[in-house]
Amino acid sequence: MVDPKKHSALAASKKLMQNYLSELLTEEQPVADAPKSVEPAQKEKLDKLLQQASVAHHIDEEKLDAITSTKSEDGSALKQIEQVTNEEPVKEPTIEPILATAKSSAELKTETLKSYREGRFQAMFFDVAGLQIAVPLISLGGIHNVDKINSLMGKPDWFKGVMLHREEKINVVDTAKWVMPEKCSEQLLDSLNYQYIIMLNNSVWGLMAENLIDTVTLEQEDVKWLSDTNKRPWLAGLVKDRMCALVDVDAMIAMLNEGDNVQPE
């Protein structure tokens, strides 16, 4: 006889998969065509998303998958991001500071599951001035080629400027000046050949990179985790065999959001 609990978990998993595939394979209506009031079609979509949210909650209870969700404060819209993995279940979600993004003027409360602090996780390595830096893949918002960057007056040295990408503004951080300001001689700065912008999670912040190296699956013991984060809160730890920095993306975003007076040291 099938265990009812197991059966229910399998059904929820299948439902979640159906919803995921359905979303991917269903065209979104253009924003301009969307009705302003909650029309039946929109309501149906919201109901569907809300259903997904309840399924997601159930899955979390069953410790099947890791799910993150983002919900607007005023309830006028609901956006859900699901991250379904087959990796080990994560424990308690960490509540992150309230962040403002370019995509919405409303403040968003973001719950981020720091799944890379437990079990295996993937990290992407890039380099800047010969220094390798790793970012957990789950915290990566995307990679863009460096385009025209407009510098802004009165900003700190590490704030390279603003780059437009598909009509969205990206705040570009000069990674070398952020990570190792003491080593940034004129000669070193002249030698830099920034080619990519590594986007931090869903934020407007992007780190400049010279080269993308590779993505690697790391075990917890591959990293020397740093508990004393007073000096560099953005530094989650050191990847032992490469002796390179692993970025705590959420901490870095929080520091960057703090404003211009925040210095890396």
Binding site: N19, L24, I81, M124, G141, G142, I143, M199, L212, T215
Partner: peptide, 19 residues
């Protein structure tokens, strides 16, 4: 390119992205 590895994260289950 390696950037493809970020698509699931950056796009999630955005409507129509499977097409």
């Amino acid at each position: 390119t390696m950037g493809l590895a970020t698509l699931d994260r950056s796009l999630g289950a955005k409507g129509g992205m499977g097409l």
